[in-house]
Design a binder for these strands. Sequence first.
DNA 1: CGAATGGGTTTGAAAAGCCAACCCATTGGG
DNA 2: CCCAATGGGTTGGCTTTTCAAACCCATTCG
Lengths: 156, 156
Amino acid sequence: MKAAPRPCSIADTLALVGEKYSLLVLREVSLGVRRFDRIARNTGAPRDILTTRLKRLVEAGVLEKVQYSERPPRFEYRATAAGEELQPVLVTLMAWGDRHLNADDRPVVLEHRCGEVLSPRIVCAHCGDEADRDSLTAHVRAPGWTTAGPTTPREA
Amino acid sequence: MKAAPRPCSIADTLALVGEKYSLLVLREVSLGVRRFDRIARNTGAPRDILTTRLKRLVEAGVLEKVQYSERPPRFEYRATAAGEELQPVLVTLMAWGDRHLNADDRPVVLEHRCGEVLSPRIVCAHCGDEADRDSLTAHVRAPGWTTAGPTTPREA
DNA sequence: CGAATGGGTTTGAAAAGCCAACCCATTGGG
DNA sequence: CCCAATGGGTTGGCTTTTCAAACCCATTCG
């Protein structure tokens, strides 16, 4: 046995979209930038890397490649429903950076329908109350994996 | 000029915590797993890589290294306030994976104080209404950068 | 005494990243 | 007609990272 790491949806998600540039590609697509050339420049990704990232994101089902011209054949990339559902990840990443890295000069601002600049807050969809550290308890379902404690988690 | 990529808090945040394993380290720390050995096994990170990641996360101010024993000197890693504020990122990543990758068997479940399993929802802190794609408008403050459109964004 | 724990560092090979150059088809301008 | 630009890539060759496994050191446990 090679001592598998903790089974976890965070790890699984990052295995799909956690490589360098992948989330920046998603950002561009969700800003309406859908073409190879422009995505390459806006993200800073080398073109060959971008090719492999796009391929992976399409395979993963978060983007789809759509032909918008025959003769010459040209394609653009669009977020699927699953891809759009990654927006909360982008929003929370941006909020953290705005607060801790660019507090005095936010490069991009999200305006909410209510007219205010968005301060995202995470709430429980059931009760509507805030879901922060203190209001959450993690339950690890996988056998042999606890949250902490001195017990040996897997191997012999 | 080498055509700088779009200035963006998402990119800036990922530059700090976007490398492989970094967010998994944060996950472990926020689950209460604070020691080198156990973090290494639970994340699957090679030990040398873990060393460099931890160093970077400490420099970035999201973790702090705390000595819990002299003779022999032993250390543990704790989340700073800034580090704890990354939890929304972990929560949204996990929610996406739970929904799209592990729908029938979530490895970890977060229970909210209200007693229900957490379905995180992002709302506007001002008005309290949901903040999804359709209720948000991006305003790019940096000059020369639009959200889309055919205009050339930076270079000559 | 010998093994285990804890926190790393070292080594050498494999993989990934990166840049610049190239390719092909079509459109647009002089 | 010819030349450059646009769009969407691929290729070559070098540099950087990653990785697994081994090693190191101090202390404690049996």
